[in-house]
């Protein structure tokens, strides 16, 4: 069972400069939330804080007892070495980490699931190919196949559709919706507002601090989007040290 992910007054800072300011709210179990905001708004930072990769300056993230291994994470593709001499099949099988562990055997059943996952992202029979030979769209499909194998209850994606053509995006969005129907919790950083309006019931708008968080039609109001943009234009100014921890709490 999924649990809700509760953020309480979460602040994350790089070298004392806050990248995410006093964010509070809840990702409900089975919700499908888009995180949007201008560049540098702290979207990826928020995800890293969720995953415990980035230390929290103040506030907390409460996973409601869900272990980190129940979380599937798709990093930005730039963080992955695509020239690495690994085959497509082995890459997908990394998704079975929860069963195989760091040292365990990879069973025939896991291999079978890996093949099936590859087939369902439209890469049937690509297993033996090196990942270096794939196009960026195909590589993104491989990463989704790996996510599929993880059978995660919470799926976190950082810009899953950046630099991907329309057809691949549609295919992968369909996968996300299928996962949503299985009542998994999905959190994705996105830039395409149309996509968010069409596919994501919930939206979180962030511009270092929380602008809006709720049902997409209300959250994605013109006023909120303008506010997010306006805030991004003031970021060059030197920031004061934030001494009032509760100033931004709604």
């Amino acid at each position: 069972m999924s649990a809700s992910i509760r953020l309480q007054n979460l602040t994350v800072a790089y070298d004392r400069h806050a990248a995410v300011h006093h964010v509070s709210g809840v990702f409900e179990p089975g919700s499908m939330t888009a995180i949007v905001g201008p560049n540098g708004a702290g979207k990826s930072t928020l995800l890293k804080a969720l995953l415990g990769e980035k230390a929290v300056a103040s506030g907390s993230v409460d996973w409601g007892g869900l272990p980190l291994s129940a979380v599937g994470y798709l990093p930005q593709v730039a963080e992955i070495d695509r020239s690495f001499p690994l085959s497509v099949g082995d890459t997908v099988l990394l998704g079975a980490w929860r069963q195989s562990g760091a040292f365990g055997r990879v069973s025939r059943e896991m291999r079978e699931r890996g093949r099936a996952a590859l087939a369902s992202v439209g890469l049937d029979g690509f297993g033996p190919r090196p990942i270096g030979a794939l196009s960026s769209g195909q590589f993104r499909r491989v990463l989704f196949a790996r996510l599929m194998l993880q059978e995660a209850e919470v799926i976190i994606l950082d810009e899953p559709f950046a630099a991907i053509d329309a057809r691949t995006t549609d295919d992968l969005l369909a996968l996300l919706e299928a996962w949503h129907k299985q009542s998994r919790t999905i959190i994705a950083v996105l830039h395409d507002f149309e996509q968010v309006r069409a596919h994501f019931p919930q939206t979180l708008i962030i511009a270092r601090e929380l602008i809006a968080w709720g049902d997409t039609p209300t959250a994605m109001s013109a006023e909120n989007l303008l506010r997010a943009r306006a805030m991004s234009q003031n970021w060059d100014d030197v920031e004061e040290i934030c001494d009032d921890a509760h100033r931004h709490v709604a």
């Binding site: 995953l51 990769e53 980190l68 979380v71 990093p75 963080e79 070495d81 690495f84 890459t91 990394l94």
Partner: peptide, 8 residues
Amino acid sequence: FDPGFLRA
């Protein structure tokens, strides 16, 4: 290959 994945 993918340090973010292993951390997760």
